[in-house]
């Protein structure tokens, strides 16, 4: 019972804390005071009490999409052992991937539903980035699943990398997952999350039409997806130390998520956003790393 309560507390508290941490870190790196650490919590509370402005051309799709997205990402968060502890529901790799894709599809439809050309631009750009990033993520997990002979996340992360294969496999999968995660979460160098210029937005175009409670749901979903994907990267990075006792799982995962947040902070403060046409060059390395990992696992037998 306490494990379940802790898990739910993770889902409620960690996402917004992570976003607050990243924002604070970016400000501190530039020697500014920055927003408060619990800023995203205040933002959410403020947005929930605001009046919503909805375009007249929208239909049920626009109202339903944030709910579908949140439901999908929440289901994935409950299914996948991203926090280092066992998840309440039993998770399967393909179900998780399809749920994330369902969420993305719903948000893309909502952007198109608003009737402006800008929504179409955003949906098209986001789909283009997802086409390149999603296969990398899937293939990286498929390599781990093939090695563990099971598509369950628990079995994947429990497979001990004691043999020499693990030494080469874990970095490859981690590189593929990291690049794909940066693309999925619309972080630098794929996309600048703090841009105000609509022509340079990829991910934020989808949320520009939302306001009030819709925006609150959407922001929470993005934060939850960030923490789940970074948690999965942390689980892969934790695999070489599978021999440690189980109670170290959660603290180690939190430390690794903090480290990932630090890397995100430094990258966002120093890197520039890539030109749109150079994006396939960048994301192809993710897919190549993932396919290499699959090839190595196939060779092992």
């Amino acid at each position: 019972m306490t494990a379940l309560a802790l898990y739910l507390a993770n889902i409620v508290v960690l996402p917004l804390l992570l976003i607050g941490l990243i924002r604070k870190g970016k400000a501190r790196l530039l020697n500014r005071a920055g927003p408060p650490l619990f800023g995203p919590f205040y933002d959410l509370w403020r947005l929930l009490r605001k009046e919503e402005v909805v375009s007249e051309t929208t239909t049920l799709v626009f109202r339903a999409a944030p709910l579908v997205n949140l439901a999908a990402v929440l289901a994935v968060a409950l299914m996948v052992p991203w926090a280092g502890a066992a998840s309440p529901l039993r998770g399967d790799l393909f179900l998780a991937i399809y749920l994330l894709a369902l969420g993305r599809f719903a948000v893309g439809l909502a952007a198109l539903d608003a009737g402006s050309a800008f929504g179409g631009l955003g949906a098209s750009r986001e789909s283009t980035v997802s086409i390149q990033a999603e296969p990398a993520m899937v293939c990286a997990f498929v390599a781990l699943a093939a090695r563990a002979h099971s598509s369950s996340f628990q079995a994947m992360f429990a497979a001990s990398p004691a043999d020499g294969l693990g030494l080469v496999l874990v970095p490859l999968v981690l590189v593929a997952l990291w690049l794909a995660t940066m693309a999925e979460l619309a972080r630098m160098p794929v996309d600048d999350p703090t841009t105000h210029l609509e022509l340079t937005m990829i991910h934020e175009t989808l949320f520009l039409e939302n306001s009030g409670p819709n925006l609150a749901l959407t922001e929470f979903t993005v934060a939850l997806k960030s923490v789940v994907l970074l948690g999965l990267c942390a689980q892969v990075a934790r695999m070489p130390w599978a021999g440690l006792p189980p109670w170290t799982g959660e603290p180690l995962t939190l430390a690794l998520i903090g480290l990932a947040a630090l890397v995100v902070v430094v990258t966002e403060s120093t890197a520039v956003k890539m030109r749109w046409r150079r994006l396939p060059n960048f994301l192809s390395f993710a897919l190549v790393a993932a396919l290499l990992a699959c090839l190595l696992v196939a060779l092992k037998g």
Binding site: G164, V168, F285, L299, G301
Partner: peptide
């Protein structure tokens, strides 16, 4: 089928770096 994984990690790393260089333009 070749059991390449039993080869030295350093030579595997050299091959992987070579493969990734094919995709670099700078």
């Amino acid at each position: 089928m070749v059991a390449l994984f039993s080869v030295e990690p350093l030579s595997l790393m050299a091959i992987i770096v070579g493969l990734c260089t094919l995709g670099l333009t700078s």
